[in-house]
Design a protein around this nucleic acid. Structure first.
Lengths: 109, 109
DNA sequence: TTACTATATTGCAATATTACGATTAATAAA
DNA sequence: TTTATTAATCGTAATATTGCAATATAGTAA
C-alpha cells in the first residue's frame, strides 16, 4: 500500500526512522555537509554547489527544515541556511544510542 | 522522475544515504533492535514480534541482508537471523563520522 | 510418498519520493 | 513604477516503497 504502519512501532522507533529517512538521500547529505564545512550560513549558492535544479533543492531544504535540523533566515532576496545546533545534538543522541547497541554478547549460530 | 541522481554525489555521500535509507523504516529499526536485545540468532518469531505480514517482514529482512547488516543461517525449515558485527561496526564508523561534524565553529546570522 | 511448517518470491494496489518546468511571491535595484 | 533576482510553490511525470494475498520453495515428520 505504500503507507508505513507507524502505529505498530514505538515513538522512538518512528523517530529514529524519521531522522534516518531524511539522511536517506545523498542531496540532503551533501547539503548538510556543505553547511558544516562553511561554518556559517549559506546564502544562495546551494543550487550551484549541489547541481540539482532550484525547485529540487528547495524541496530537500524543506524536508530538513521540517525536522528542524536547519534554520533559514531571510536576508533580502536570499535566504541564509544553517545547521540548528541544538536539534542536531539531540538528533545525534537518539541516533548514536541506536547505532551503539552492544555487540559484545552477540553469539550467533 | 523518482530517480535519485547518485552520479552527482560522492561515493561516501551515497553510502551514507544508503545506510540511512535502510534505517528509514520503523519495521527495520524494530527488527534490528530485536536482534540486539536477544543477543543471539532469531529463528522464526520475527513475524509475531513485529506485527506485519510474513511477506512484508521477509522483504524488510531482504533489504537488511542486501547491505550485509544481518546474516541469515538456514537451520532446518527456519532461518536464523543475526547482526553482522563486522559490517555493523564499519557502518557505524561511516555514520558517526557524518553525525559528529564539528558544531563549535558554526556562526549563523 | 504425503502432510506439515517456515520462509521466499510474485504480482499487484496504494502511496511516497524524486526531479523539474512553469509560475508565484517578495525584495532589491534602476 | 519597472525590472531583476532569489526562493517557494504548483503541477506533473517517472520511479520507488510499502504491504499483503497467493503461490512457490525447501526442509521435516508421519
Amino acid at each position: 500500500m505504500g503507507l508505513t504502519k507507524t502505529e505498530k512501532f514505538t515513538d522512538l522507533q518512528n523517530q529514529i526512522a524519521d531522522f534516518a529517512k531524511v539522511f536517506g538521500h545523498p542531496a540532503r547529505v551533501a547539503i548538510l555537509e556543505h553547511l558544516f564545512q562553511l561554518n556559517s550560513c549559506v546564502c544562495g549558492d546551494l543550487v550551484k554547489e549541489i547541481g540539482l535544479a532550484q525547485p529540487t533543492i528547495s524541496q530537500h531544504l524543506k524536508e530538513l527544515k521540517k525536522l528542524n535540523l536547519i534554520k533559514g533566515n531571510i536576508s533580502g532576496t536570499s535566504v541564509c541556511y544553517c545547521i540548528n545546533s541544538e536539534k542536531w545534538t539531540s538528533m545525534k543522541t537518539v541516533m548514536e544510542q541506536f547505532l551503539n547497541q552492544d555487540l559484545k554478547n552477540l553469539n550467533c549460530c
